[in-house]
Computed example of a mutant assay.
Amino acid sequence: MKNNIFDRELLLIFTRNPELGKVKRRLAASIGDEAALKVYEMLLQHTLEVTQDLSVKKWVFYSEEIPKKDIWSKENFNKKLQQGRDLGERMQQAFSEAFSEGFQKVVIIGSDLYDLQEEDLKMAFLALDDHNYVLGPAQDGGYYLLGMTKPTPQLFRNKTWSSASVFQQTRQDLKQEKLKILPVRNDIDTFEDMRSYMDLMELIEKDGEI
């Protein structure tokens, strides 16, 4: 069993290997593969910046393979490989491993949220002091964050992942539980999602990508 607060709290970060033609495919349909990769690399960097100083344990889960060199320092981040046939199964496996290791408060995020700040993550872990679950709704109807204090495999079953129904389906699953809802945030999946972010737009405009 974990002895101190730092060892009892865990952040799971799900990420895709940043490879040309394999990330942000809906975004790439509008701006091209090279521009989509640049945007995703910037989103990864942002995710690193808002998580690296957080006083919890952190595991980064790669989609394809664990690279020999990346932006995540070994001192701050434990690197793992996602396991499962779909997103739900992969998340469920990650949570299961976390709880089997003795963690008591586990939160998962993706790596495509330019809105996400360190305070959002602190709020999520704090919420789990007096709630069993915490959920961060995304503008597109999904969720950008899920946290819990006990294994709950049913949250990852019978969902149409990457659809506008995921948040409401998950909330329905938790209707009898003590649940904290965080502020809505915008994840970057399409060109429309990134229009309001000057840094992201400048990233692709300066190279004539759009």
Rank of each mutant, 00 (worst) to 15 (best):
Q82T: 13
F77M: 03
S196Q: 10
S196G: 07
E205G: 00
N186Y: 13
F167S: 06
V50H: 03
G142K: 02
L11F: 12
N17M: 07
R157P: 00
L155A: 06
G88M: 02
Q172D: 14
P183I: 05
S100C: 08
E49R: 14
I108V: 15
L128A: 02
V184M: 14
E41G: 03
G110P: 12
G32N: 04
S162I: 01
E177R: 12
T160N: 14
E97R: 11
V60I: 15
K80L: 14
S163N: 08
T149C: 15
I210Y: 14
Q104L: 11
F6E: 05
L37N: 10
N78M: 13
D7P: 00
S96R: 08
G141P: 04
D120E: 08
F99D: 11
N132E: 10
E192W: 01
P137I: 02
S165K: 13
E177D: 15
L128K: 11
P183S: 06
D53W: 08
V50E: 01
I71P: 07
N78C: 11
A36Y: 11
Y62W: 15
S196Y: 01
G208R: 06
R26F: 08
Q45D: 14
M201G: 02
K38Q: 09
G136M: 08
M148W: 01
Q154K: 05
E65M: 02
E118H: 06
G88W: 12
Q93K: 15
G110W: 09
R16A: 15
L128C: 05
Q168V: 02
V39M: 04
I210W: 09
G142T: 11
F156R: 04
K58I: 01
F77D: 02
M194P: 12
K69D: 13
Q93N: 15
E209C: 07
T170S: 13
D187S: 10
A36K: 03
E192I: 00
L20A: 07
E192S: 11
R26Y: 05
D115W: 11
E9K: 12
Y62T: 01
Y40E: 02
L155H: 10
K150P: 00
L179G: 05
Q154H: 05
K105I: 00
I108W: 09
T170G: 10
E9R: 14
N17G: 11
D70Y: 09
A98K: 06
L20I: 10
E192D: 14
V39K: 09
I13Y: 09
Q104A: 04
K180D: 05
L135P: 08
E118G: 01
K74M: 10
L37Q: 07
G84H: 07
M91W: 12
T47Q: 13
S196M: 01
L200G: 07
P137K: 04
P18C: 10
D130T: 07
G208A: 06
D140H: 09
D199F: 00
A138E: 12
S30R: 08
I13W: 09
D193Q: 03
V184E: 15
